[in-house]
Design a protein around this nucleic acid. Structure first.
Lengths: 228, 228
DNA sequence: GGTATCGATGAAGGTCTCGTCAAGAAGCCG
DNA sequence: CGGCTTCTTGACGAGACCTTCATCGATACC
């Protein structure tokens, strides 16, 4: 599924638990310990979903929720220690999409995250129409790529990279950007890794990998997908 | 979807919350504060769905449910503060279509409303003609699957998975999506459970389970039903 | 032209995913 | 209740895939 989830939780023990269970579900998880950083990261990294602890020192989860809701549509899941009706009403009024009371089962957390992502339309393969660039056709829903109508089988990462570049044909993406878009923002891999995948990708979709028609190298910058 | 929903709830705070979330889903909402008015409005305005609080002064939700059920097919969702099984049985006995206990999450409310509307809109559980993929025939209405015309007996989950994949042959579904589509939105099971069912399913419908013709694995993404 | 940086390539090792099996839990029916 | 089916989960191994490393060639800049 590979969604990018930002978790704001001040108790490191809890935070690690949450990270563990979300990662086991295949999500990329970034953990911050306070509300200020939650705001900062959600603005700069643009995660697909936020998990906010209500009780945090300084800027708490409710504050973050209220502030972010005014500027973004990102799905928000609130964690609350108490289970009083008032708390729930308050949190939901502030624009949270769902809440879960501690202690919660890992499965429940995972299921609620899944449900929110699905509702937001980020819960897996995209549903939109295939992207067409010249003789290259990228169908995210079917996880299928065709060159001149001939289907080509790609691996998950290869497909992810192609998808990332196809988001804006012609635009140059740095390796760091590609890693973030295609792999998830908490993946700490060497930038060279992208090169390896690009090479494999070219072998599959380019007629002449030495003179690539689709995935082009921009020296010193990164890669781009040729415009049609 | 954009349905017209009548909400009967005597607590204004709760009522506003429900209104908020149903409107966010794109429905138009009319709120009344007691059972008498719920009856009146549902007769005159003919809403597409009713959300009734069980506990209301005067004519309560159960009364409204019983009375309306005698004169209309409108889908009814009951809200109750307690979660005893007795209440549930009582409510459903009286003709309610679904039941949700407070406090509930907006996502759950939205999901149940969606489900009820879908059921009502498509005029029954079974929809349309059987799906045919190659020599595979899936008849949702009859809960029946045939391979080469020969009927095969599947379990509920196996059938559910096959049905979910058949919704869009060729499209890749993640395990999370399959769980939601086939098992229900509030099932907290491990994703690997899907694998087990898929294996059993393949044993029944594939001639060579090692080289599946129908239910195909897409490494790193999920499963798909082959296109015919 | 010389040098430093960058990218392409192939191979090796490690990691992850999936299929398979089996045991226990849960549900169903008489 | 007892027996049966079905569902869920854990473990394990094979294979696919990912990442890294080392090397060579290409490119930019002086």
């Amino acid at each position: 599924m590979n969604a990018r989830v930002l978790v704001a939780e001040d108790d490191p023990k809890q935070a690690n638990l949450i990270r563990l269970y979300l990662e086991r579900e295949g999500h990329s998880v970034l953990v911050v310990g306070d509300g200020r950083r939650a705001l900062e990261y959600s603005r700069t990294r643009r995660p697909d979903l936020l998990v906010l602890d209500v009780m945090m020192p300084g800027v708490d989860g409710l504050d973050v929720c209220r502030i972010l809701r005014a500027e973004s549509q990102v799905p928000i899941l609130l964690l609350t220690a108490r289970s009083t009706e008032d708390d729930k009403l308050l949190g939901l009024d502030l624009g949270a999409d769902d809440y879960i009371t501690k202690p919660f089962s890992p499965r429940e957390l995972a299921a609620r995250v899944r449900a929110l992502l699905r509702r937001a339309g980020k819960g897996g393969p995209a549903t939109g129409a295939p992207v067409v660039v010249g003789d290259l056709e990228i169908d995210s829903a079917k996880f299928e790529v065709r060159v001149d109508g001939r289907p080509v089988t790609l691996t998950a990462k290869e497909f992810g990279i192609l998808e990332a570049l196809a988001a804006e044909p012609g635009r140059v993406f740095t390796r760091a950007q590609i890693i973030e878009k295609a792999f998830g923002f908490d993946q700490y891999v060497l930038e060279r890794t992208v090169d390896a995948h690009v090479m494999n990708l070219r072998r599959k979709i380019e007629k002449d990998p030495v003179e690539p028609r689709y995935v082009q190298t921009v020296y010193g910058r990164g890669y781009r997908l040729a415009q049609s």
